[in-house]
Write a protein that binds this DNA or RNA. Structure first.
Lengths: 196, 196
DNA sequence: ATAATTAATTACCACATGGTATAAAATGTC
DNA sequence: GACATTTTATACCATGTGGTAATTAATTAT
């Protein structure tokens, strides 16, 4: 909070810079291919500094994922919570995940969720939490669509939310693989257009 | 071929046993979590024996994936090439991947494709080859459906094949995560039921 | 000035990984 | 029996990993 002059040697390490570098490294190259050592190297800092700030690797991966949540996942949830029509909302999130260059390398959250076992407790807990958040955002958008009458409600909300969540995750997975998910996501979302 | 008495010390290592053990290890625990050393341990053989039979780790992972192709992927392709109706074929492969206990831990091919970068050249080549094979099998089933008149053909075949491929992969991915893909796959395949 | 405190730097540790050199055991050939 | 051959078994190597001890540098408080 306040920046009162502290007592010892002033720190040259900028924590938020390190987190940002770590996030982009994990995001771009995949968490499996980025060691703590390589983050140290990319950030140009000393390893003990990392351990002082984050405790251990679990703390670093958690911080990187939390930063990702702030940076990009918030946007998705904002879109799903906007006051646009249901169709506009899901089209926007579909375009964001399937076409936006921001997700050229896929989604860090999706990548980490695919390998939960590779992470520590706190990171896994955050993954679960973000998963639940995203699912809840989809459910809310569906409920809004029902209320506003711009979704037919031909599918029970919980199933529809799980379906949307899974399809967006699939699109982001395909982008990470270098495939173009445009056609797939278009077909997948077509079930919301006409009653079944 | 022939089993003429060879000259040196008789080998106690059964190559096909090792491949089977490796395949199940990769399949169940995920290729990322199974080191070559652990395969050596599980198979109860010496490490140099592995290197004599497979050359390097790339050879071992490739052999395990090839064995997987023989064991389980063949079944999928057989189903898609059967003389049943289009609906019966895709329902069968959907049930196989979404409900059959055989895929309780997901699909080894899908898991390896998700992390191509972790494997050597020959394994990556086999992954690409199997991917193309599966896609071709879906295309064939769709073409048959068109010919036999038991699919409306409301979607261009290439897109429909990519879509089916992606959705089956998604279901297997969900099973690997411990989620139940039943509802998701049912919704995803509903686009083939009625014209859009 | 001197002490106290905090951070940076260097060097290190134990361990696991993929991969190999080397010697011992078990067979057929001569 | 001596020899060549082939597989096994033991031990080892270099490298990379997550994590830490110890020293040095830079600052404030006394």
């Amino acid at each position: 909070m306040s920046e009162k002059a502290k007592r010892g040697r002033p720190k040259t390490l900028n924590k938020s810079d390190v987190v940002d570098i770590a996030m982009h490294a994990y995001w771009q190259d995949g968490p499996e291919n980025v060691s703590l050592n390589s983050v140290v190297q990319r950030a140009g800092v000393a390893k003990p500094s990392i351990y002082r700030e984050f405790g251990n690797e679990d703390g670093l991966t958690k911080a990187a994922l939390a930063h990702y949540a702030e940076c990009v996942l918030t946007k998705v949830i904002e879109i799903l919570s906007s006051d646009a029509s249901f169709r506009d909302r899901i089209n926007a999130v579909a375009r964001l995940s399937a076409e936006d260059p921001l997700h050229k390398h896929g989604c860090l959250f999706v990548k980490m969720r695919a390998n939960q076992s590779a992470f520590g407790e706190t990171t896994r807990a955050l993954i679960d939490q973000m998963d639940a958040m995203a699912l809840a955002a989809f459910e809310k958008a569906l409920h809004d669509g029902l209320e506003n009458g711009d979704w037919s409600g031909n599918i029970p909300v919980p199933q529809a939310a799980q379906y949307l969540h899974a399809q967006i995750g699939l699109a982001l997975d395909m982008r990470a693989r270098g495939e173009d998910p445009k056609d797939v996501i278009a077909l997948a979302l077509s079930i919301f257009k006409r009653p079944t």
